[in-house]
Design a protein around this nucleic acid. Structure first.
Lengths: 243, 243
DNA sequence: CTTGGTTATGCTGCATGCAATGGTGGGTCC
DNA sequence: GGACCCACCATTGCATGCAGCATAACCAAG
């Protein structure tokens, strides 16, 4: 990314349309309609499409041009497992390097916010947003504190994939009580992870981070198996993959 | 990548010029000179530059355009550590899933080729090429056999970075005997890794893959400290990083 | 001699024109 | 009636023109 001007607008808009399902998996990304729809020329569209391919959201179509990539359930699952391995490395590095004073404050603020969001027993829209923001902040803090820039980039890349993000599965679970249970468990893992980080237990921190991601994988399977696929249908190829 | 026609040529040519040092770290990637040099218009150049940025070889320059990215020693070291973590995951998955008959043959072929290349005691140009090819094949076989496509992509991405590739450090060490020693040790690690894979020892395989990458990191430090930086000077910012 | 303003120049980023290629629909032949 | 072939059309990919802008050089004033 990091494009400027019109091309950046195009990229953001295209991402949004793919994530919201307005552009569905397999849809051809024709330049002229997109250019008209976004009120710009074909040139920035082409740049945005190329960037979209680099992000993995588009694939080259036969005969030129691009199409919205279809993700298989398997690929999403694999991407989350990969995220676990990457975040595990980040956690290990943080534990090995030691938790700075500033980082400790960020981590505990996040934990407190999570506790507060979950304290009421049910998650209204507001509490859910709070938890989601806390979750993003916590994971980002660890990824940054690892002090490994290629690692940070790799985590960002996998986070850009649909449903592979750390907070992607938050809003989905079917019933409010179940959702509360799942998030409560996940947040207990957050507590343990921070504990391991501060104790300098690198191996344990890495294992916990992986387990945390595996937990997300289980939740993903739960959602898919329960047929609650709403927005996912736009992106996931349940039959045969395009890419 | 995966661009077609002129843009693909441009991308390949630009990568080559960066890796060979013809384009040095920090050099501005001006469109017009590049278009003239490559005998094409500015349009495919721009696409190639954008792709180059996605690969991490170029960074946006202040005031528009791009420049060749300057890597710090730290970043290269971090990238190799990241590769170790990723290849560790791949090795663990292969061990957990079991080694197929075809994979076992590929692995042992590679091991035999490596043994043969190292058998003569000194590495002439030919033996070095043979070892390098074997090394690439072995690592690629494991990455593919892991059966995790996002992981494979992540490994490919880090391999695209200069000096982070598994076989990047092969040709560099100063003296032929030392080079032979380093490669012999690395290849012993290959043997142990394959042994762990076939025994289904996932944890051991992962640890060995990481150690193998850490070995590459030590070799890298060795080369840098011994001042034998030839081609590296073009890419590594020894003073202050641009990116 | 230094410093501030101004101008000129090169570059980027976007729009549009044009050729080539692939796909589609219709027409014709078997 | 079906299948094959041809022509037309849409779309991509590349080239080029143009405006905006940042940088840099130059001149003038203090």
């Amino acid at each position: 990314m990091s494009l400027t001007g019109q091309a950046a607008r195009a990229l953001i808009e295209l991402r949004a349309r793919i994530f919201t399902g307005r552009l569905r998996a397999g849809d051809r990304l024709a330049e002229i309609p997109l250019a008209e729809a976004l009120g710009m020329s074909r040139t920035p569209i082409r740049l945005a499409l190329s960037a979209l391919q680099a992000e993995g959201l588009a694939v080259p179509a036969p005969g030129g041009g691009f199409a919205v990539r279809a993700f298989t359930v398997r690929e999403v699952d694999d991407a989350v497992a990969l995220r676990g391995q990457l975040e595990g490395m980040a956690a290990r590095l943080v534990a090995e390097h030691g938790v700075s004073r500033g980082l400790a404050r960020r981590l505990h603020e996040a934990l407190d916010q999570g506790d507060a969001a979950l304290a009421r027993g049910v998650l209204d829209e507001e509490a859910l947003d709070a938890y989601s923001g806390m979750n993003t902040a916590l994971h980002a803090a660890i990824a940054e504190a690892a002090g490994n820039e290629p690692l940070r980039r790799a985590i960002a890349a996998v986070e850009a994939l649909p449903f592979a993000s750390a907070s992607a599965l938050v809003p989905s679970p079917r019933s409010a009580p179940q959702r509360h249970r799942l998030l409560t468990f996940a947040h207990q893992q957050h507590h343990l992870l921070v504990e391991a980080l501060e104790a300098g237990q690198g191996m344990r921190a890495e294992a916990l981070a992986r387990e945390h991601a595996d937990n997300a994988r289980r939740n993903l399977r739960l959602i898919l198996d329960s047929g609650e696929a709403e927005g996912l249908a736009a992106l996931i190829a349940f039959k045969d993959p395009v890419a």
